[in-house]
């Protein structure tokens, strides 16, 4: 396939167009993914999550620089929210990364959530595959950062960075609400600000309270302080330390044979997603397009039947083997 060849050769135009088609749900794009899939699995994927304004994009920019210095090519997928009212979106993460725009070893692509919950866009998984086949050594994925439970990132990453900043009382709350379970590395960003030592102590205390089996594999999430992004020297040092920490975590995954379980988790999620979009969605779309769904809803309102009976009827009609 011509497209596959071009993507393997790193052609940005073809790749970005394919990502666009995947976002837009173009059928033909799906068949391209079928050809790409066997070629995937080489890239190291690092997820970056944390509240809006925590400095995630600035951090990504710093990491890109570090990985480039170490001779790695880097893909970036930056997700920003779609407005639920207009369907439009402002994708502004790129502003912080534009200095790499002309580096052919860096490919930055912004994605809008388009209604997806969980902090990512639906196309992220496939976009990672595309960048992987292009030969990107490292792929950095920046989540929306709504402060909600952005746990989807763990399904796609080998290493997850949770970015926190001092002086936001609700941070630890957010951690308790489930972010902690996904962190492989904690980053205290804007550590020049007041309260960074306190935040560090709070994270430590929280890790201390975690049930012992949490760190059974021998990895207790380290806390990396990142100095003011506007002081290039100290910020650069922090970025070096963070990049080293990411590398250490990856080595740990390899050494403890844990990479497999992360890859398995991703495969399982992808399968679920694929079944949803190849089986469930077409059936629902059909019922909506034919106007049947309205009749069904009316029947429920009139108490003529119940949701399970209707769903079972649908299953009998559309699924040959039955479930």
């Amino acid at each position: 396939m011509e497209k596959v060849k071009k993507i393997k050769a790193g052609d940005v135009r073809t790749a970005s167009r394919l990502i666009r088609n995947l976002e837009d749900g173009v059928k033909e794009a799906r068949s391209t993914i079928k050809h790409l899939f066997p070629l995937t699995g080489k890239a190291q994927v690092v997820g970056i999550t944390g509240s809006p304004g925590a400095g995630k994009s600035t951090l990504v920019d710093g990491l890109v620089e570090q990985f480039r210095k170490r001779g790695k090519t880097v893909g970036v997928l930056a997700v920003d929210p779609t407005s639920p009212f207009t369907g439009g979106a402002i994708l502004g993460d790129r502003i912080r990364m534009q200095r790499h725009a002309e580096d052919s070893g860096v490919f930055v692509r912004s994605l809008a959530t388009r209604g997806a919950l969980g902090g990512l866009a639906k196309a992220v998984g496939d976009a990672i595959h595309v960048m992987d086949v292009m030969g990107m050594d490292v792929i950095l994925v920046e989540t929306v950062g709504t402060g909600q439970q952005e746990v989807d990132i763990i399904n796609h990453s080998h290493t997850v960075l949770v970015v926190l900043i001092p002086g936001m009382g609700d941070e630890i709350q957010a951690i308790k609400a489930g972010i902690m379970e996904i962190a492989d590395v904690f980053v205290i960003n804007k550590a020049d600000r007041e309260g960074s030592s306190k935040l560090r102590r709070e994270i430590m205390a929280m890790l201390d309270m975690a049930p012992p089996e949490t760190f059974a594999s021998g990895w207790r999430p380290p806390i990396v302080r990142v100095e003011n992004a506007f002081e290039p020297d100290s910020f650069g040092k922090s970025m070096e330390e963070l990049t080293d920490t990411i590398a250490k975590h990856h080595e740990h995954l390899v050494a403890k044979d844990l990479l497999g379980s992360r890859i398995r988790r991703k495969a399982a999620v992808e399968l679920h997603e694929a079944i949803r979009s190849c089986v469930l969605e077409p059936i629902l779309n059909h019922l909506v397009a034919e106007g049947e769904i309205e009749g069904m809803i009316q029947k429920l309102m009139d108490k003529k039947t119940d949701p399970y009976t209707l769903a079972e009827e649908v299953a009998r009609r559309f699924l040959k083997e039955g479930v």
């Binding site: 407005s83 207009t86 439009g88 402002i90 994708l91 502004g92 790129r94 502003i95 725009a101 809008a112």
Partner: peptide
Amino acid sequence: LARCFRDAGFEVIYTG
């Protein structure tokens, strides 16, 4: 302009 385009339903990439 970027906000106005978002409100028109476009996906806007702003580069600074």
